[in-house]
């Protein structure tokens, strides 16, 4: 560092151009990110505008933008909720297994293995879903239809191909499992040892200790992890586009042949062949998806930021 040490130092030191440039670059990078984000909302809005102002019969489907998007939003939320219902208990169990049941030496490696689930590209989950999960789901769907057919979710004629909302939900659950498990694992590891030992010293079994000390400590993180997972599931595209056999409209039956598509999958399927107003319509749908995921993610962050308040952590 001869250049700097050679300089005389004092109040009237020459401005350090290196420092200024570097600080400017760092700040600039941050500003770029804010601009990009503003751009995402801005450009989407700009390109969605023609669809927002178009007369209803010009929009794809002929009934207006709202009629086009809301069944897709329904499908998006339905598949994601199924995924969440499956993945939440699993992720809590897996995180507990890794942090409190598995031998310490292999716990880290087990964590990596679960993380690998997140590394598999979504297109591969899509292909795998069609070839492996869908056929395997048919007997289960038949059973559900026979025995739980009185519920609106399980219609009388299950799909023979298995390319149903239920299968999409299961595959999405697998895809969001790693991120949820990672959040839970992190917070379960942070449980103060003092509280765990307090519980054990009172004569608690391992499970009672977990219920007394670990779960109360991690509750809000589990909630925020679930929301992060929900955000992922809402935006997941290719797996849904490949697996789901869709039909226009709202369909509560999750094992039938007619399934509501999701916003993301619909965009992926329609966009390459679209032009003109159809493109604007799809971008408007994307804008809706953007805001839904934005809300969910912000809610998740909010829960995280509130965590210190009601966990009582020191």
């Amino acid at each position: 560092m001869s250049t700097t040490s050679a300089k005389p130092r004092g109040v009237h030191d020459a401005p350090r151009y290196g420092d200024r440039i570097f600080a400017g670059a760092a700040t600039g990078a941050g500003v770029i990110i804010l601009l990009v984000l503003a751009g995402v909302a801005g450009f989407l809005l700009w390109q969605a505008l023609p669809a927002l102002t178009a007369s209803p019969e010009d929009v794809r489907g002929g009934k207006g933008l709202f009629e086009y998007i809301y069944p897709l939003a329904f499908g998006t939320i339905l598949t994601s909720v199924i995924a969440l219902v499956i993945a939440t208990p699993l992720s809590v169990g897996i995180a507990l297994f890794i942090t409190h049941y598995a031998p310490r030496r292999i716990a880290l490696a087990l964590g990596y293995v679960v993380d690998l689930l997140a590394a598999v590209p979504s297109i591969i989950y899509g292909l795998w879903g069609v070839y492996v999960v869908a056929p395997a789901s048919v007997p289960v769907a038949t059973w559900l239809s026979n025995w739980l057919g009185f519920l609106p979710f399980f219609g009388p004629s299950p799909s023979a191909s298995g390319r149903t909302t239920l299968v999409v939900g299961v595959v999405l659950a697998i895809m969001i499992l790693p991120v949820m498990t990672a959040v839970n694992r992190e917070v379960f590891l942070q449980t103060p040892r003092l509280h765990e030992e307090a519980s054990l010293a009172l004569g608690a079994t391992r499970w009672e200790m977990i219920r007394q000390a670990v779960l109360p400590f991690g509750r809000s993180a589990v909630i925020s992890g679930a929301m992060l997972g929900l955000g992922r599931a809402l935006g997941e595209t290719m797996a849904v586009a490949i697996i789901l056999s869709t039909a226009v409209g709202v369909h509560w039956d999750i094992i039938g042949t007619a399934n509501s598509s999701t916003i993301a999958a619909d965009i992926a399927l329609q966009f390459p062949e679209s032009s003109g107003l159809d493109v604007n319509t799809l971008i408007a749908a994307g804008l809706v998806l953007f805001f839904i995921t934005l809300l969910v993610n912000m809610a998740a962050r909010w829960v995280v930021s509130r965590r210190s308040e009601f966990s009582g952590a020191n």
């Binding site: 992926a268 998806l289 993610n297």
Partner: peptide, 24 residues
Amino acid sequence: VLTFFVDVMTGIPSIVAGLFAVAL
């Protein structure tokens, strides 16, 4: 603000990112 929006950005669905680039 940046921390918050980087978090928000993590949650952008990939298809929406694609549409943004298209619109841009």
